[in-house]
Structures are given as structure tokens and as C-alpha cells.
Design a protein around this nucleic acid. Sequence first.
RNA 1: GCGGGCGUAGCUUAGUGGUAAAGCUCCAGCCUUCCAAGCUGGUCACGCGGGUUCGAUUCCCGCCGCCCGCUCCA
Length: 508
Amino acid sequence: MATQPSAMDNLVSLCKRRGFIFQSSEIYGGINGFWDYGPLGADLKRNIKDAWWRDTVHRRDDMVGLDSSIIMHPRIWEASGHVQGFTDPMVDCRACKRRYKADQIKVLRPSGGEGLSFAFFEGDREPADRKIRKQAKADPSAYEVIDLSALDGKDFASVVGPDVDEPGTLTEPRSFNLMFRTQVGPVADESSVAYLRPETAQGIFAQFSNVLATSRQKIPFGIAQIGKAFRNEINPRNFTFRSREFEQMEVEFFVKPGTDEDWHRTWIAERLRWYESIGIAGDHLHQFEYPKSDLAHYASACVDITYDFPFGRQELEGIAARGDFDLSRHQEYSGKSMVYFDEETREKFIPHVVEPSAGVDRICLAVLCEAYAEEWVPKGEGAGGPRPAEPGAPVPEFYEPRTVLRFHPRVAPVKAAVFPLLKNRPELVEKAREIYRDLQRRHRVFWDQTGAIGRRYRRQDEAGTPFGITIDFETLENGTVTLRDRDSMAQERIPAAEVAARIDPAAG
RNA sequence: GCGGGCGUAGCUUAGUGGUAAAGCUCCAGCCUUCCAAGCUGGUCACGCGGGUUCGAUUCCCGCCGCCCGCUCCA
């Protein structure tokens, strides 16, 4: 049987139980790499996207939005490099379990043709030379260097892999095209091939000129877009973290050449602030700066914003300084000028770009991980607030467990729940209904009249609802209600008329 | 894709070559004046497809899915 369920297992289970995230196509056995957001998840995700759009587009003077199509002209993906870059033939080693990019592996083959061949990493043939002297008792200079891809299928039996000493462990190169192919129109031939976009960014670059001409923006300014993207990942993993269909929130921020570095720094700071504004603790956020050697040739810098997931420190967002690579390539492939004329300085240039590119589903998952807590709550009144549960330990006497999602109210799917203390007292239900209707005009609120009041509070704890509002007989007398705080579980009596004023600023 | 583990109600688990049990959840009702209380009743499952067998949830094979490693980088 399974070992001790991890925190991640418990979260996955809660997501299904409460309707945050379901496996796609579950009734047909599921489909690897695709996920559906249930009633609570749909609102959570929407709140995250809305918060991003408000903060990134509405509340700035230097940003405009765009919503480009998912399927675009296939030449876009030639210009962007995805047609080539996403087609990487890979080779597996059955013995050492390593995987290599076929174009990075070279082979030393005996000039005579007979005998073992030795594979090595391009630029580092020394280990292979050693093996030749030792295993084949031969002179490496009697061997010729060829590409791995130049070998026939039958030749692989005599190839010794880069990290092993025996031949025949390498598979033949297999091509993994990470773009989903489809066709446009009813005729399926090579001329109708199209791709589901593997990133939203190229839609922005392709419309740069139109946006510039219609938005009355001047550099520096940015174009923001939220939308689905698709990558046929070899191996989807870690719940929704690596999915084949996912949603991105991307900005292409166009700047004057030479100011790239400043803007890059500015955006990193801006984005870190934003993550904290939706409730992700600063000490779970990190920056990973790519070493120069790992950067794409056109990029001058790239920093990932990472989060400490239960399964490791992983990327939420990449912020790259991409120079003028994208616009230049589209200028080259489309034949249309991407040159910008700066009226103040009378300069002409192709704008450089800084690209903060975030994964919505990854942020959702981070928000869920950050919010998830298992606690011990003292039984009885006045015994104090909840305290964190010790994993694996039994619940102490006079305590009971609770599971709570401590969402920041900005992203919480439901902002408040309204409860009549007793459902069999029509006057309570009626008054509660009135308050519920009033709040519903401003926020997503939840109605629950079923079961004991404590049970209803706990239900909302698992949904991450920050506020509970209970209507009792005192409400009928003096108009006050109980406002219950999700995190501290503290209760407070306030006039019903003030409830909205308490929820609004928190949920902002 | 390769290697290892796993697949029984919504969740967590039990169990058997003769079609399945429990706790929690959920639904309905009663009761209840503020933190998963109580009582009554109810819904819901052997991932899919083959094979062996008189008979498969159980044994075998394939597929699908989930988890862990290799790999990946929104």
C-alpha cells in the first residue's frame, strides 16, 4: 500500500473533494496532462487573472491589453524558432537511464567500419578516447567522428553510450515535437498545417505595429495578454504544474535599446511585489538568475521567480530581456518593418523587449499550496485559537483537527458565507436571506443553512472563505450579526450594516 | 519515452475465485441560540479491454491514469 500521504497528496485530495481541480475526462479514464477547474477552482483562477489584469493593465498608464488567436499563421512559429527549436530528437540510454539530445551526441567510429563505436558529448571526446584505448585497445586517431543521426538503426547495437561501458544501450533518436499540430480547413495536407500556440507571446509581437498605431502609446510601453497555450510535454508531472494545456499571463514590455537592464530589474521587483499582494509569502519566493552560458543567444538576462512547492523549488514566472530578437525575426520573416521612430530624439530603432511571462495554473497551484494548512483546534470555548498540526502526530486530547485554506481575500473564490443560526426559524432565515442578497450584489457569497453552525464554519474553512456571517435572534432585536474570522476563528459582533465595509477592502 | 510503485463509493481504508464492508463526506427529516454534537432514513465503488474459468473485483496480458526517479523550465 501507499506510504504516508504527503502534504501534496492531501492537497490534491482536497482539490477534488471541494471542487477546485478535477482530472480532465475522468469518466473515460482521464487524459494525461489536462485538468479541469471545478466551481471553486474556476473562481480562484478567475480572481488571480483579474488581479493580474487590474494591476498590470488597468492601474498603469504604460500598458494595453490584447487577446490574440490561438491558431496563427504557421510562419510565426518559423520566425519565433519554435518549429525548429521544439523538434529535438532524443536518445535514451537503457542502462544508465539518461536521456540525451541527439544533436549533442557525437560518435567515434572505427575508420575500417568494424568493431565498437563510442558516443560522447560534443566538445568533450576525452572520455571516449579513454574507452577506445582501454576497451578496444586501439588508437583514437584511427576513429572518425560522425553525427549520431548519421547511424543506421542496426548500428546502434555496437555503440557504447557516453556514460556506460557496454554497447547497445542507446535507443534510436526519436523526435518529440512539443507543438500540437492541426490543420486549417478541411483538406489535411502539408499546406494546411497549423499549430496550437506554445506561448501567447508571439501573438503580441505579431500585432506590435497595429497596437502601436492604435493605442497612442509611446515607448516605453507594454502589451499584456492572458490566454491558453499548448505544449505536448513529454512527461506531465506534479498535479497541474506541468500540463499540456495551460494558461499564461504575459507582458511584452518594449523599451529603448540600452535601457533593457533597468527595466528588467524594475519588472522583477514589480512582479515579486505582486505575488506578495495575492498572499504568497516572501520567504517562499525566490529568484533564479540564469547563468550567461545557459541563456538563449539573443537574451541578455533571464530571471525566474520560483516558489517552494512541496515537490521542490519550481518556476512560476520567467522574466527575460530578449533584446530585439523577436521583432527583428518577424521583420525578417514578414518583410514588414518593425522600426520605431522616437520623435523626441529623432532616432529609429527596433524596440528591445522585457518579457515577464507567468503561468496561471502554476500560480493557482502555488496559491493553493501556500493556503493549505492542517491545524489542531482546542475543543470547548475560550481555549484559544488553532495551532499548526504536527505532521503524522496524533491529535492531542481536547483538540480536534481542521483543514483550512488561508487564501488572501483577494483571490478567495468565495468572500463570505451567510448562515441563519437555525434553519427551522423562518424569521432568522428571512433576515439572513436579506443580508445574503445584499452582499451577493458585490461579491461571490455562499448560503448555507444546513447542519450545526460549527460544521458550516468548517465547510467554509476548507473552501477558504475568509468571512462567516451568522444571523441569530439578537440580529432581529438590535441588527448585529456575528462576523467570524477564518484564520483566528475569532468571533465579533458588528452591525449588519457594517458587514460590507469589512469585506470590501479585504477582498479588493 | 525508460525504470519502480499503485488503481475498491466524493475522501480514507477493509476484503473475497461465487459481484463487496466500514469511517468520514454528501442528501432528506427531526432536534439544536455560535466551531465537524445527537437520532432516523438515503445516494454512491471494484479504472478500461481482452484472456483463463462454470463463474473474475480477486489470477494472467494489454491499455489508460496517478505517484517516485531520469528528463523538462509557463
